[in-house]
Design a binder for these strands. Structure first.
Lengths: 151, 151
DNA sequence: CGTCTCCTGACGTTTTTTGACCATTACTGA
DNA sequence: TCAGTAATGGTCAAAAAACGTCAGGAGACG
């Protein structure tokens, strides 16, 4: 229940709001949440990945900062690019989950559709040994996203 | 008949109440009942199976939890029968398609959801040789239907 | 006896959190 | 200008916090 990483994730997303950009200082944010500064890096590394549609930039030294930007799908074009270029020939469960969360967060798919996709790409569902499992998972995610794009 | 497993089962069902969801921490619950933590897993494995209409999710690490969700069907329901008996351990594309169309006709899934499922069970998506392909397809359809029944 | 269900404990895995140490950038005062 | 110091953020390994698995013991029941 109250895990810190999730709280910080929510806080940052709230902070981004409509603008899609949040800029913070690591030490200040860590102090607000009463945690180690490196905890912030953990949140960035696990919750604001490129699969989930975020870009993180930072700068050290005086006046340093961390800036998180959400990449929005403007046209259907960006999604086609996602399918054809970003998703390759194989995909881990975490990566696939990231893409699904992104599609849901940006209202391309609803909660039920996200749940269906998550069930499909789960490692227990694709019960295969590892080189093959990730290949089938990539096929699945691409096919399912394409199916949704026809509407 | 005052066995622990039954007590814990009752407690969890009471906790789910109308919402159909119970979330607990394994160690805390075990402490409440004065038993070994693994006893909780035993209860989950024997009493809250998908066959009985439940889905169990969990998370490890700090802030970890166990969440039990009651699915929207009764034992003896047509859908229950579909998942438990009709869909076996393997499934052809035509058979799967038939089930998906039926779910749509019965308004259990909408058009988009049907399209996602159809894409997933297509033979080109599950690019495997024949004994295996039909096994994975059966897994896929069952998992996707279960996913939808949570809502 | 043999089998089934319940229950425990030892050991394993995953996720989060912390802390020590490193790297980079800005400021400041000869 | 330039060197030194202050101010930031980054990395990585270890600890901590949960949950999972599995073999086996203890009864109950036929």
């Amino acid at each position: 229940m109250a895990n810190l990483a999730d709280d910080i994730e929510q806080f940052l997303k709230l902070m981004m709001g409509d603008s899609g950009v949040a800029e913070v200082q690591r030490a200040t944010l860590a102090a607000q949440f009463g945690c180690a500064p490196s905890q912030i890096n953990y949140v960035l590394a696990t919750r604001f990945t490129s699969e989930r549609g975020y870009v993180v930039e930072s700068r050290r030294g005086g006046g340093g900062y961390i800036r998180i930007t959400r990449l929005n799908f403007e046209a259907g074009d960006a999604i086609h690019d996602l399918i054809q270029r970003q998703i390759g020939s194989h995909l881990s469960q975490d990566e696939a989950l990231g893409y699904i969360l992104r599609l849901h967060e940006q209202s391309i798919i609803d909660e039920r559709e996200a749940a269906i996709m998550q069930a499909a790409i789960h490692r227990d569902t694709i019960a295969l040994e590892l080189p093959y499992r990730d290949v089938i998972r990539a096929n699945l995610l691409k096919a399912m996203i394409l199916a949704v794009l026809r509407f």
